[in-house]
Amino acid sequence: MSNVTTASTKEAKWWNGGKSPFDVEYGKVMMWYFLMSDAFTFGAFLIAYGTVRFSTNGWPNPNEVFKSYPFAGEGTNAPLVFVSIMTFILIISSVTMVLAVHAGKMMDKKGVVRNMIFTIIGGIAFLSCQAWEWNHLHHEGAWWGMNPFINADGTASSTNFTNFFFTITGFHGFHVFSGVVINIIMLIMTLTNQFEKRGHYLMIEKAGLYWHFVDLVWVFVFTCFYLL
């Protein structure tokens, strides 16, 4: 490693004009700032959820609420099983997205198309899982303003649990949906050779940042609602 003096002069040069101090294109910097603002929105939701939970004596047990999966019988007791499938779907779709970005850097159109298709399938699979779960919970009587689940200690619960659950997973699901739409647009643009003509696949990288962010938020939502 170089000594401190040379390091600082080299770093200072980034701000002397003539080149981007961040050394990435404008759109990517703006995507990062958008994601940062989105992180604050999700953070506000999750912190509100945490604050309300801390200010209440009882809270429903997630292992009681989320214990079913599709095609399971009435009395199924399988906590965490379905949500772990959802989590893995999103992680794998994130991996295929990285592979698409990497293929884009290599100007490998075929690789981009293949991995974008996998990513889109993963996104749709996740949305389908969420649709099933919402539908299932709604059938059990849970919705905004309705909470059929009692607290873990056997006392009466408020509707805070369902309100926060549907609002936050709904907001996240909306992000997944937008991500799938963006990815489909990227796939069409790849197939119509738009990126080939531009000579770079930077748009795929920006869509990738958004998609990873969606995965990142799920890490927090999954932990806060299903595990803690």
Binding site: E74, E140, G145, M146, P148, I150, A156, T159
Partner: peptide, 13 residues
């Protein structure tokens, strides 16, 4: 939890 009774709003509360 399934069925009609579940659709009633927060009965225990």
């Amino acid at each position: 939890h399934h069925g009609e009774e579940g659709t009633k709003e927060a009965a225990p509360a």
